[in-house]
Amino acid sequence: MKSRRSFIQQVSLTAASIPVLNILNATTMNTSINDDKILRVAIMGLGGYGTRVAEAMKDCKRAKLVGVISGTPSKITDWQKKYNIPEKNCYNYENFDAIKNNPDIDAVYVITPNGLHKEQVIRVAKAGKHAICEKPMALNAKEGQEMVDACKANNVKLLVGYRMHFEPHTLEIIRMRNAGEFGKVLFFQGLSGFTIGDPTQWRLNKALAGGGSMMDIGIYSINGSRYMIGEDPVWVTAQETKNNPQKFKEGVDETIQFQLGFPGGAVASCLSTYSMNNLDRFFLNGTKGFAELLPATGYGPIKGRTNKGELEAPVVTHQTVQMDAMAGIILNNEKPVVPVDGEEAVKDLKIIDAIYEACKTSNKIELKL
């Protein structure tokens, strides 16, 4: 059996505001659903984030962890015991196509290195199961579109792990913006970064990660600029800085600054880095006011303020709310405030492709999302 690990080694050589609760009730908190409408999920990739999702799902009302897919037999055994998963719902990376014949699994959450997403999601789709994929959904927009097309061809849904799209502080700022409370939006700043450790990890391997910081933490500022401003950008410029070429090899970005232009006239200035800590901030400025999230995208608690004062919103476990909301999307065709489908992810991938092109050419790249 070829495990994901062996593949990698080969390649490597609090009081809630009423508006927020209304949003959550509309999109994520419907708990009156019958047991036969529970989304039954298998997690593929039993690493650190897979574990975080599994723990969060213990508190879900609409989604349940029922299966696992891993290349490491010992992890499967451990998860079986910890989460009471039956043997018939356990698979490895070679045989998981057999989920096609398992009526007890509705969806597979793919939480593996970026370079594996395309093949694995397409296999899930061909098995007739809904796919949830971690972000970035693929290595580039072409791959992402192929994943979208495969899921459509097999009549299954494709969702992406944009957990912030269900986070209460984030949703409250979006509500305020939609209500015109900030006036005309003029500027957004997104700072996303941390100092990465182990130089041999898959996130610093181009074949598995597709790049460097941009493919991991930078996507938060890309996606955040879109949902905070409420528009899709029409152009991008970008500049790359690399101070440690030994750690950050060819094709693995260390730090990228990028700028986005939006059709309404707003501009965004963002930073993605693997070499600086304390960078997790979103700032939105308009003619009537401002909004800030600090931290903006960490696992929590998220904190925010506007020109009207501190945001009062519930503190939630992001993955719990996300999975309950995704159950509603998959089972009941519910519509989230901010999309989390494959098409949404392809837009981010088109922007990432353009950022890398802008870094290489120093050109302003026009975007058609």
Rank of each mutant, 00 (worst) to 15 (best):
170 T>A: 11
141 A>C: 08
168 P>F: 02
173 I>M: 14
125 A>F: 06
176 M>S: 12
203 R>E: 09
181 E>V: 01
142 K>I: 13
156 V>P: 03
193 G>M: 07
181 E>Y: 05
124 V>M: 09
116 L>C: 13
178 N>P: 01
111 I>P: 00
116 L>N: 13
169 H>G: 04
197 G>F: 05
116 L>Q: 15
161 G>S: 15
104 D>I: 00
150 A>P: 05
196 I>S: 10
174 I>T: 10
143 E>A: 10
137 M>R: 01
122 I>T: 11
151 C>W: 03
137 M>P: 01
157 K>H: 11
183 G>I: 04
111 I>D: 03
173 I>D: 05
184 K>M: 09
176 M>Q: 15
192 S>R: 11
179 A>P: 02
141 A>S: 15
160 V>N: 14
117 H>I: 08
164 M>A: 12
109 Y>A: 11
171 L>T: 07
172 E>C: 00
127 A>L: 07
106 D>K: 07
156 V>F: 05
199 P>A: 05
110 V>A: 14
120 Q>W: 12
108 V>S: 01
147 M>G: 02
163 R>K: 11
142 K>C: 00
151 C>S: 07
198 D>A: 11
191 L>Y: 02
135 K>C: 06
154 N>P: 03
196 I>Y: 09
184 K>Q: 14
169 H>V: 02
202 W>A: 06
162 Y>S: 02
120 Q>Y: 15
197 G>H: 08
166 F>I: 12
101 N>V: 00
119 E>M: 06
160 V>L: 12
130 H>D: 12
192 S>Q: 12
175 R>A: 13
106 D>Y: 10
116 L>W: 11
116 L>Y: 09
133 C>D: 05
151 C>V: 03
102 N>V: 10
197 G>N: 14
174 I>Q: 06
147 M>A: 02
202 W>E: 08
117 H>Q: 11
114 N>A: 11
200 T>Q: 10
115 G>K: 01
159 L>V: 14
126 K>F: 03
99 I>P: 01
112 T>I: 13
202 W>R: 06
184 K>N: 14
177 R>I: 02
179 A>I: 04
115 G>Y: 01
186 L>G: 09
185 V>S: 03
189 Q>Y: 00
142 K>S: 09
106 D>M: 09
123 R>V: 02
111 I>F: 04
178 N>L: 12
101 N>Q: 13
128 G>P: 08
190 G>D: 04
155 N>K: 15
101 N>A: 12
123 R>Y: 04
112 T>F: 03
200 T>H: 11
124 V>Q: 04
118 K>P: 03
183 G>W: 05
